[in-house]
Amino acid sequence: MSNPLEDLSEAGVSVWLDDISRTRLRTGNLTELMSTHKVVGVTSNPSIFDKALAEGDAYDEQVSELAARGVSVEEAVRLLTAYDIRWAADTLRPVYDATDRVDGRVSLEVDPRMAMETERTVAEAKALWWLVDRPNLMIKIPATAEGLPAITRVLGLGISVNVTLIFSLERYRQVMDAFLEGMELARANGHDLSRIQSVASFFVSRVDAEVDKRLRAIGTEEATALLGRAALANARLAYQAYEQVFEGKEWKALEALGAKPQRPLWASTGVKDPAYEDTLYVTGLVARDTVNTMPQATLDAVGDHAVVAGNTVLGSYAQAHADFAALEAAGVNLTEVFGHLETDGVAKFVASWESLLKGLSEKLAASA
């Protein structure tokens, strides 16, 4: 029988796991998923670490040692998360070596409270890169207006970057521009471009969740006919923009120097509406040179019953443009939607980060 995850990989989609925990690492689960589920990368975020630290006792020994040293809660978070990221990076190192440094990547996000501060983001990215000290690390930087120059500068330092919280095509084009500028800066700074990798994390399910809410509020027959159409259309048009940029002369000049393209990464791929097929944001976004990072439930669903029927992005652009036009005609202000999603996305990660700090502070106090 066909293995859907293997089919996905053969179609040019890199399967990454959107989760990490010390328990997962200790039990060898990540190693197992690399074999059984074709996992070749890992992404993390503040929500994932908040959940991991709150469950079980896997972190207790290190927390106790940090408490004995009198480490601040902010520094304790860096040390705890860096430990897990380093472990995952070592686990995935064989993939990194086998894929010429393209996959086998592990992402660690900067403190989301810095999302609107360029200088602090750059400084934090440098500190995390030094702390983890693994070549297959990626530093996650939010694609806010203030994050864009930080992305360029961090890439210019030779640091691999996962650009997160991208919702709109306009912002995505700015992200690709920031990437190209960063690679030019890295070249000027004497870095080996072949060692720098970047992905652009384009969020999917949150788009449908917000647009569908507005369509239901509008309530017309034309509006309800568009339910579940926005997210795939948005992501497919993002891939069209990716093709346009990475077929251009500016990119070809960098590619000749060994640079690798900034791949689109489909994030937030677990469906939020149970009425939708649980593999919708995987099977609907099959395209070469992309990454799909999945939570465990989505990964299991794809492996169990997904039907991967070749590329589902090429040839879809006209319909995607038509869907966007229909959404606007129905009364959905997409510019407003994307602005709200970016602001809300940063706020949610900040809330998770603060929850993580609060929980860890309590654990440190208890240990002390």
Score class of each variant (00 low, 15 high):
N162L: 09
N162E: 09
V163Y: 00
T164V: 13
L165M: 12
L165H: 02
L165N: 00
I166W: 00
S168E: 07
S168L: 03
L169E: 11
L169M: 08
R171H: 11
R171T: 10
R171C: 01
Q174R: 13
A178S: 14
F179H: 15
F179S: 01
L180Q: 10
E181N: 12
E181F: 04
E181R: 05
E184Q: 14
E184T: 07
A186Q: 03
A186I: 08
A186K: 00
R187D: 06
D192R: 04
D192Q: 02
S194V: 04
R195Q: 15
I196W: 02
I196E: 01
Q197E: 10
S198G: 10
V199G: 03
S201A: 14
F202Y: 08
F202E: 03
F203Y: 08
F203E: 01
F203Q: 01
F203I: 11
S205R: 00
S205H: 04
R206N: 09
V207F: 05
D208A: 06
D208M: 04
D208K: 05
D208N: 12
A209I: 05
A209Y: 09
A209P: 01
E210N: 14
V211P: 01
V211K: 02
D212H: 09
D212P: 00
R214L: 14
L215H: 05
G219M: 10
A223R: 05
A223L: 09
A223T: 12
A223H: 01
A225S: 14
A225R: 14
A225Y: 08
L226W: 06
L226E: 04
L227W: 08
L227F: 10
R229W: 00
A231F: 03
L232E: 05
L232Q: 04
A233P: 06
A235R: 04
R236H: 08
R236M: 07
L237Q: 09
L237S: 08
Y239H: 15
Y239K: 05
Y239D: 07
A241P: 02
A241L: 15
A241C: 08
E243R: 13
E243H: 08
E243C: 13
Q244T: 15
Q244V: 15
V245H: 14
F246T: 01
E247F: 00
E247Y: 03
K249P: 14
E250T: 15
A253G: 05
L254H: 07
A256L: 09
A256V: 11
L257C: 12
G258R: 12
A259K: 00
K260T: 13
K260P: 00
P261M: 11
P261F: 06
Q262G: 02
R263A: 00
P264S: 10
L265H: 02
A267K: 02
T269E: 05
T269W: 00
G270L: 00
G270H: 03
K272S: 12
P274R: 11
P274V: 06
Y276H: 14
Y276A: 11
E277Y: 09
D278I: 07
D278W: 10
L280N: 04
T283E: 13
T283Q: 13
G284R: 04
L285D: 06
A287Q: 10
D289P: 00
D289V: 07
T290N: 07
N292F: 04
T293D: 13
M294S: 04
M294D: 01
Q296F: 12
Q296Y: 09
A297I: 14
A297D: 11
T298H: 03
T298Q: 06
T298L: 06
L299Y: 10
A301M: 07
A301N: 06
A301E: 05
V302S: 04
V302L: 02
G303P: 00
